[in-house]
Amino acid sequence: MVEPAAQSLALQPIRLSGRLTAGALLLAGLAWVVRGVWEIRLAVAGEPDSGPPDQGYGVHRPLNGLENSYHLVTSVGGLVAFLCALLFLAWLWRVRDNARALSGQVPKYAGIWVFLGWIVPVASLWFPRGIVADAYRTTAPGRKLPVSVNVWWGLWLIGMLGGVGIVYRDSTDEIIARAYSEVWPLLVSDAAVVGAAVAGAFAVRAVTAVQVERIRQAQGAGFAAVGGGRQG
């Protein structure tokens, strides 16, 4: 009779974590909008006569004012993305653990994949989405997975393939050179990241909401069981 109440106490609070994570995703999306605006400014200004910032063989020319400001924009965006990543991973760990506590089922993915799933080649193509989907389905069996989860993940992959997603391969100076020569691929990747951030915020809210609902039900059942035991 006491077991349901004990189980509910093992659940981790998720509402605040979900709100912070959704907010951080939207802030990251805004940072990439600003980044895209600066890339358009670079394209409109055109490459200086002195050539790209990285001129090869370890030679870098002094940056002009617009290029310096783009470095600042990308640095701020990187800090926002780092904060977003920390909050998202903390939220993902919580929803995974809560889903296990609520359902009594062993998660499909081991806990280590909450972190490694983003960086291990091949696995990074579907493990993070799989963890979110598994948490939702075990929390709310029979309910259809929110469309936002698939939209978020599809756009995330497009942004990564573009090379200037949240984790990008090129140096800032190389991206400046790309903005001068061919800005459209950069803007497409930026748009994908912004879309992924917005869809991700909706996905986080959907998964959080269903867990809040189930946690309330579990706590209510636990209190009822304890109360019934005392009356007996």
Rank of each mutant, 00 (worst) to 15 (best):
G117D: 02
T138G: 09
V106C: 08
D173R: 07
G78E: 05
V194H: 07
P141K: 02
A133E: 12
P107E: 01
W153F: 06
R169C: 10
W126M: 06
V132S: 00
G165T: 04
W126P: 00
S69W: 07
F127M: 14
W118Q: 05
R94D: 08
G159C: 02
L161G: 06
V193S: 10
L102W: 03
D170S: 14
G130W: 00
Q55P: 07
V183D: 06
Y136E: 04
P185Y: 05
M160N: 14
L102D: 05
A101S: 14
D173Y: 09
G200V: 01
G154M: 02
I176E: 00
L145G: 03
R61D: 01
K108V: 13
P185Q: 11
L63Y: 06
G58K: 05
S189L: 09
V122E: 09
K108E: 13
R96P: 11
M160E: 13
G111L: 08
T172W: 07
V194P: 02
S181H: 12
F115A: 14
V122I: 13
E174C: 01
G195R: 00
F82L: 15
V198A: 11
Y57I: 09
W152L: 02
D97I: 09
T172S: 09
A81T: 15
L66Y: 03
I119M: 10
N68C: 10
L87H: 06
R169M: 12
T172K: 07
L86V: 12
L83C: 13
V194L: 02
V149P: 00
Y168E: 04
G117L: 03
P141M: 04
D97H: 14
C84A: 13
S75I: 12
Y57S: 14
L92Y: 02
